[in-house]
Design a binder for these strands. Structure first.
Length: 981
DNA sequence: CCTATCTCTTA
DNA sequence: GTAAGAGATAGGT
């Protein structure tokens, strides 16, 4: 930037609030998204930019930036904890607009700048100073008096709503003091909106007069005794300290270490189609037309952009209200009269939890008319809790035994929530195999088909919200009967979004936690162990108490948890990453993957042979027969009997026989440990995979249907079980053979598409590491680049060991590195590992900053956040036990990285089916392995489908987050998983 | 029969 | 150093 340049700085946050209050309320897009403030903001930007192109107007910007508040927690809160403490929460319909306005800024191709710990005003002050020092002129687009201290010969302000220029004369005219005295003036008057104290009884007029008389604040405070008016004199003397604090609060910080440099703010020509796409998506018809004309864009040829209601704004929503949010969340008061989302959520929780649950009051639906009556009531209410009872935990093999419903009612006297619940038994039978014959249906059950057709009408009615706990399971059960569940909420997912890491999300623990109610256990009705009976054989009255209670508890949980979604600012995580994924995963599980029984059986035989041969050799070398699979017996043989050196003990005092320990012994020339390692590999592969997998082949579908758990991990990853397909071997040749058993149907192929280095890319983005960002932009080998930076070795011809070390360090960083862990991984001394880490931090100082900031955030809030707003809770990070604490710190450092990557692939999965549909190709998504998606499709279609898959995956973060680093996806098709991967 | 411990597989 | 699930053994009930 140079003399003659002109920088425009838009006070985005200030503008949002002004536009919101100035414009007619309740301007909404057709999908209900409130967009009034967005509309005002876009019109303002367009006006500024189109005038900028009109050279007849005097002022034309060469550089441009829009600045936002990041959160209200700034250095000012350290100075004065009450700062902005009386702010009320932003209006509910404004909250979602914060994110959209950032999106709008990007659509205009303008830099969108915000920084944690600083207000927009500080960033504006900093850029204004930098530009001034470069000799350029500055216009601040705002009318906020807090910014008037910046006005001077090179800096002026512009009130875009009143179309008014604010220079030095205007400041003097309005406030009676020149801009440089504005700080002193505000120190005296204070600010009730921001809770800046000032001096009581002094307003702008008196303040200006005092400053005129004494020159500045310090002089005034020194000579306050000279003031004639008694009360005024006393107040100034008494509250002198408050005035000094106030001065520091209103003084803008103009030396923030900003990341975007001035030259990056240069104003580029508008990208017409991009902006038109956004405006079209927002349904701003007249602005769309104006922009299309001015940029010569054919609006009809541009697809409307998806509008982001992203997490970032919701994250900040409650932050804007530290006072009330904090009080409502933490104090024990009932929050009566508190109309913030936090207050409402709290009142709802208290009212719901205080109610008694009576499991003897449930209705059993015996005939179809009773069911019809309940369905009619559900339609009237528009919402119903629903739960299925089945014969199996495996939803693919489960038979429907009955279902329960629960409806909300309002108590006439107190207005509290009351719940009516019922159970409809469908397939209960008498115990089979006893002397009386048994096996017949229990009396008083309605015909299955009629019941199902009533149920279908209810579940598929989008006007009735279905509430369930782990509804993916019920969806799968109902899908077997050709029934889908159309609009729904899931209490398990609500709980997961609200408090992943803070406790379990099963119904029993949720009921204890939120309702203080202990539910009837499944085992209480079925018995356990060898006395257990199938649920279908449970007496109907007992089943009614159990099943209807589940529906009631689910409904009550929903009443408690759903309002907290908005109160806690995590609604978009639920709406975009959790709820829409449930039916997607349901279909993946339902489809399953074909597994070749013959291949596994052959492998089992080979493995058995190999293991048997090794076992014989092992017994021979050991000189006795022992259980090779028993670590305890093995440890005694190796370290007591044979007295091999270097043995270590586990925490329970047993000899450690880990693969690493055995490898070390093998390296020292001992034959036995090597054979143990080999034997373990073979038996592991056999027992866990080749023997176990065939047992998961569904007899009906002949395919394997894993179960994906959506609420199992703290970070947002999925987990897989029954069988776990996320740990199928890949690293060794022997292990990979197991993957060859995962095959496509004849005529089909499997496609595997996986993200390349997604976690390191996320790290580069969240920690703002320029070298990493550049390396990914250039597509260079990231580990080699790291090695080159650290060890000064050129990338060309780098020894593989140097790269290996750098790779271990990169992974270590993601895992919250410790010298101990890195030393272990690389087999080097801890001191050497510590030296590597020191060097790494020296070369990439941003990483250290990121780690410290993340730890501090976790300690402060009890949780950390992904780039999409998902929270991972670490309550034990404040533990007094240093080991526990350190472990939680590492986990907290890892969670935003692992979790953001998990969010990205979730977004891809949610968008994948519509994208494939739109491309007109039939392809089924089958599996997810953290950074990889597996599909099956007709062989002839693979070539045309791969680009669609890659496109969806690589753009999955957009538009909610515009990553600083490109995402890269590799995809391949083959007849089996091993070759596709 | 249930649970804890140890080990090993994946990203 | 992060995140998972699962099998075998051993020891309690």
């Amino acid at each position: 930037m140079k003399k003659g340049d002109h920088l425009f700085l838009v006070d985005g946050s200030g503008y949002i609030f002004r536009a919101y209050h100035a414009l007619p309320p309740l301007t909404r897009k057709s999908d209900g998204l409130p967009v009034g403030a967005v509309s005002g903001f876009c019109n303002m930007l367009w006006k500024l930019l189109s005038e900028a192109r009109d050279t007849s107007v005097g002022v034309t910007p060469t550089h441009f930036a829009v600045i936002f508040d990041y959160s209200s927690k700034t250095f000012r809160n350290e100075l004065y904890p009450e700062y902005k403490a009386n702010r009320s929460a932003p209006p509910e319909d404004l909250v979602p607009q914060f994110a959209v306005i950032r999106e709008a800024t990007r659509a205009f191709d303008l830099p969108c700048i915000e920084m944690e710990g600083f207000e927009a005003d500080d960033l504006i002050a900093t850029y204004a100073r930098l530009a001034r020092e470069a000799g350029a002129d500055v216009t601040v687009i705002s009318s906020d008096k807090d910014l008037m201290q910046l006005v001077g010969p090179q800096v002026s302000m512009y009130d875009s709503m009143k179309d008014r220029q604010i220079g030095v004369p205007e400041v003097i005219e309005k406030w009676g003091v020149p801009p440089e005295k504005m700080i002193d003036l505000q120190a005296l008057t204070g600010d009730s909106v921001d809770n800046v104290p000032g001096i009581p009884g002094i307003g702008p007029k008196t303040a200006a007069q005092l400053i005129e008389e004494f020159g500045d604040l310090d002089t005034l405070l020194e000579r306050a005794g000279e003031i004639k008016q008694n009360k005024r004199r006393e107040n100034i003397i008494e509250f002198a300290d408050k005035a000094r604090i106030s001065r520091e609060l209103v003084r803008l910080k103009d030396d923030v270490e900003v990341t975007e440099k001035l030259d990056e703010l240069v104003l580029n020509p508008l990208d017409g189609p991009k902006l038109v796409a956004f405006l079209k998506g927002m349904e701003f018809t007249s602005l769309t037309r104006r922009v299309a004309e001015a940029t010569e864009t054919d609006a009809s040829a541009v697809d409307a952009a998806e509008v982001a209601v992203d997490a970032a704004a919701e994250m900040r929503g409650p932050d804007l209200d530290p006072g009330k949010a904090g009080k409502a969340g933490a104090s024990g008061t009932s929050g009566k009269g508190d109309d913030t989302p936090q207050g409402l959520a709290k009142r709802r929780a208290e009212a719901t939890a205080s109610a008694k649950i009576d499991t003897s009051a449930y209705e059993t639906l015996r005939d179809i008319d009773q069911l019809k009556a309940w369905c009619a009531m559900a339609r009237e209410r528009g919402l119903v809790a629903f739960d299925t009872e089945t014969t199996s935990l495996d939803a693919m093999q489960a038979e429907l035994v009955g279902f329960s419903l629960a409806l909300p009612e309002t108590a006439p006297d107190t207005g509290d929530l009351m719940v009516r619940a019922c159970y409809a038994p469908l397939m209960h039978s008498n115990g089979a195999g006893d002397l009386l014959g048994g096996g017949g249906a229990q009396a008083g059950q309605m015909p299955m088909q009629e019941a199902l057709s009533e149920l279908k009408a209810l579940l598929e009615d989008p006007a009735v919200l279905k509430i369930g706990q782990n509804l993916k399971y019920d969806m799968l059960v109902m899908a077997q009967h050709g029934i889908s569940i159309e609009s729904f909420d899931d209490t398990m997912l609500l709980s997961y979004v609200l408090e992943a890491g803070a406790g379990g999300h099963g119904m029993d623990s949720l009921s204890e936690r939120w309702l203080g109610h202990t539910t009837i256990g499944y085992k209480d009705v079925t018995g356990s162990g060898k006395n257990a009976i199938p649920f279908a054989e449970v007496q109907i009255d007992k089943a009614t108490a159990y099943a209807a209670e589940d529906a009631e508890v689910t409904l009550r949980l929903w009443h408690v948890l759903k309002p907290r979604l908005v109160a806690d600012g995590v609604a978009s995580v639920y709406e975009r990453l959790e709820r829409p994924l449930a039916p997607v995963l349901m279909r993946m599980e339902k489809h399953g993957i074909r597994v070749d029984r013959q291949i596994l059986s052959r492998l089992s035989g080979e493995l058995a042979q190999g293991a048997a041969a090794l076992e014989a050799e092992i017994q021979e070398l050991a000189g006795e027969n022992f259980n090779v699979g028993s670590p305890r017996q093995l440890g005694e043989i190796l370290f007591d009997k044979m007295s091999l050196p270097g043995g270590t003990k586990t925490k329970t005092g047993q000899w450690s026989t880990t693969a690493q320990a055995l490898e070390d012994l093998a390296a020292a020339g001992h034959e036995l440990p090597r054979k143990i390692v080999d034997w373990r590999q073979l038996t592991k592969l056999k027992s866990t995979y080749t023997d176990a997998l065939p047992g998961f082949i569904n007899p009906e579908t002949k395919r394997v249907h894993t179960s994906f758990a959506m609420a199992a991990t703290t970070t947002g990853r999925l987990s897989s079980s029954d069988p776990n397909i996320q740990n199928i071997p890949v690293r060794t040749a022997a292990g990979r053979k197991i993957r060859t058993a995962f095959i496509a149907e004849p005529g089909n192929v499997l496609i595997s598409a996986d993200y390349s280095q997604i976690e390191l890319r996320v790290l580069a983005h969240v920690a703002h590491i320029p070298q990493l960002t550049q390396a990914f932009a250039d597509g260079v080998d990231i580990h080699a680049m790291t090695a080159s930076e650290m060890f000064g070795v050129p990338i060309e011809g780098m020894p593989s060991d140097v790269r290996r070390r750098a790779k271990a360090i990169n992974f270590g960083i993601i895992y919250g590195i410790s010298a101990f862990g890195l030393a272990n991984q690389l087999g080097i001394e801890r001191s050497e590992a510590g030296e590597y880490i020191r060097k790494y931090f020296e070369r990439f100082p941003g990483i250290k900053d990121y780690m410290e900031a993340t730890k501090a955030e976790a300690k402060e809030n009890g949780y950390v956040t992904t780039i999409f707003g998902r929270r991972a809770h670490y309550p034990e990070i404040r533990s007094s036990n240093p080991q526990v604490r350190a472990f939680n710190e590492r986990a907290a450092i890892n969670a935003p990285i692992q979790g953001s990557a998990a969010d990205i692939i979730r977004r891809a999965m949610v968008r994948m089916e519509p994208a494939l549909e739109k491309a007109g190709k039939k392809a089924r998504m089958l599996l997810q392995v953290h950074d990889e998606l597996i599909f099956e499709t007709a062989e002839a279609d693979a070539g045309s489908i791969i680009p669609v898959i890659v496109e969806v995956m690589e753009n999955a973060a957009m538009p909610a987050v515009d990553m600083a680093v490109p995402l890269k996806v590799d995809a391949r098709a083959a007849l089996n998983w091993d070759e596709a991967h």
